[in-house]
Design a protein around this nucleic acid. Structure first.
Lengths: 346, 346
DNA sequence: GATCTTTCTGTTAGCGTTAACATAGCGTTT
DNA sequence: AAACGCTATGTTAACGCTAACAGAAAGATC
């Protein structure tokens, strides 16, 4: 019997040696050609490239990385993909890394510290050149791993706390405060809050803290609250808004922890013929472009998602290309309130 | 001096040898403990685990993979992250792989065949155990790479064509046909189509083909069309709907290539006081849960995103754990029309 | 023409881990 | 007590590639 079944893939995967034999030069020369490193004559270069192409050779980065002690991967660790926020961050990261030899690898934690720890461990075991990780809150073990890894680490999306190395993001406390101030200045006095039932979403928590703190300074407080988990955010926003307004009919402003539930609330108010923003004002958080087509534009505050991704990627790229670059960079973005059509001005 | 600078990372990353020296056993034994492979006495096991923990050792999978010729990665290649569709597929994949030693690694192509080729090459160079890739249309080079890789390949989201190995998805032609038939049966006669200006979105194209084909069988045709690219889908849906209805006021049905622009169209019609579904019927595609809170429920057809992800992951997991498992599996999911509130029944 | 450059190619020795085999120790069997 | 079997550990040789150095070929300099 010759080999195996007809037109089946070659039994063994190809190595440099195969290309080397096919082109009649040493493995080292093939390696040089394929990596564009060192001087190789035009003639051999072409010979090698042709052979590699004919054979369908794909280099083995595992062996390459082990030999060179260099890995072009950047670990990107985020809490969720369904949130719409994070895909945008990833897009920003990819955009920048595309112009470098670096390649992002994503991991998702579902907002669970144990998952984060596991994902981080898995990723670090591939010895990436850098880590981009959402948030500043991590388990002790995770922090220890990040410190011990000896690679650039950028914590993103939040700047209210001490980073391990670098950080890029906005202050969610400040975002909460500014929205509270805008609401107070606009003259609203009976304020309700609607958010996720997610104790581990530290950024939502910080926004809420900043929000209540700033209200308190004006002698106000959140008069009623409503929380949800799971399900379609738009539908939940409707339900919760109905619930809270039924329970506390005198509320004149609703602050939502994200734009999707805010949009649900907006649709509910419009359905019920509630005058927005006169009778009730509304605001969300994130600046989700997706919602641009709604009948009214929800007041919100941009979380600068793509920009955060780009900045984080730039930091990693710089640190990787220049090992002497200063660590501990801190980039604090300052988003402005977008008043939209649901928050009175002044 | 005890070790190195205070609280600075160790100058060199740790290896098995460090753990081996710290625990007084051979590297091999450490390796066995850390992988739970082979017999190791309880005493040494604990000694080793303690030492590894104290040192903060993280195994080097690069070296491990090279030595064992086994890599626990599954390459997942999708066109886009901003589409909402794909994050759901990824969630389904993760869900299943979480219960195996396999780990997904994502790559994004932005619907560009050249990007797909590059991403695929990069991923294959890490010698993953399997590939999950969206669509059945790939460049010749990509197909060649996939065939030559000698690993299980699952093409997902579409079943209208010949897979390289396995496939999981729905027939978009059928989806288009069924929607056309439902529309015709409901009595609509003047039909418009609105979609993305994206020649490389083969699935949208196939839906359109199936749609027109089925209309033709009933003696009907698409009377007007409108295309967009970029921007907020909801807003675009509004604009396009206005444009097409202004140009062709006698249309009585609008078929949208996705739910987001469909939702924009729905909001537009409601704004204008158009009677939906009597005066004009509407339908989209995908079954986006996100939209559940809209004033009316858009007629749509589920693309079974999470289910597709799960099934694909199962195929890979099976093939990896049992090298004799049959290749070429084909799973065709059959979604039903969801009439919602925007398509008359019967 | 001998020496020195410069350009190109080859050789050797790992990178950190694991597969496969070897061996030490110890209780059992006959 | 010799032979056997079992468990627990160690030794050796890859895995496929690249860094670092070595050498050959070809031209340049004196």
């Amino acid at each position: 019997m010759a080999t195996n079944a007809p037109s089946s893939p070659p039994p063994r995967t190809l190595t440099l040696r195969d290309v080397s034999e096919a082109s009649g030069v040493s493995e080292m020369t093939v390696s040089r050609v394929l990596r564009n490193r060192g001087d190789v004559s035009e003639t051999t270069r072409n010979k090698v490239l042709q052979a590699a192409k004919d054979l369908g050779y794909v280099p083995n980065k595992i062996a390459g990385a082990l030999a060179s002690q260099r890995v072009n991967l950047v670990a990107v660790i985020i809490p969720s993909l369904s949130n719409m926020v994070f895909p945008e961050v990833l897009t920003g990261i990819s955009e920048v890394l595309d112009e470098t030899p670096l390649q992002p690898v994503f991991g998702v934690t579902n907002y669970q510290p144990e998952r984060e720890e596991k994902v981080l461990y898995e990723m670090l075991s591939w010895r990436p050149s850098g880590v981009i990780i959402a948030g500043l809150e991590h388990s002790e073990a995770s922090k220890a791993m990040l410190k011990a890894a000896g690679i650039p680490v950028v914590e993103i999306m939040d700047v209210d706390g001490e980073p391990i190395d670098s950080m890029v993001g906005i202050s969610h406390r400040r975002a909460g405060r500014e929205m509270a101030n805008a609401i107070v200045e606009a003259g609203y006095e009976h304020i309700g809050f609607l958010g996720t039932k997610m104790p581990l979403d530290h950024r939502a928590r910080k926004r809420f803290e900043g929000f209540t703190e700033a209200l308190a300074k004006s002698g106000l407080e959140v008069e009623d609250q409503e929380f949800y988990s799971g399900g379609s955010a738009l539908a939940k926003g409707r339900e919760m808004t109905e619930t809270i307004l039924t329970r506390s009919p005198n509320l004149d402003f609703l602050y939502y922890s994200n734009d999707m539930i805010g949009a649900g609330g907006l649709l509910y108010c419009l359905d019920k013929g509630i005058a927005v923003p006169q009778q009730i004002g509304l605001a969300g958080f994130n600046g989700v472009e997706l919602l641009d087509g709604l009948p009214r534009q929800l007041a919100t505050m941009d979380a600068c998602r793509a920009e955060v991704g780009r900045a984080a990627a730039h930091i990693i790229a710089k640190r990787v290309s220049d090992p002497n670059a200063q660590p501990g960079e801190r980039i604090v973005l300052k988003p402005q309130i977008d008043f939209g059509d649901t928050l009175l001005r002044r």
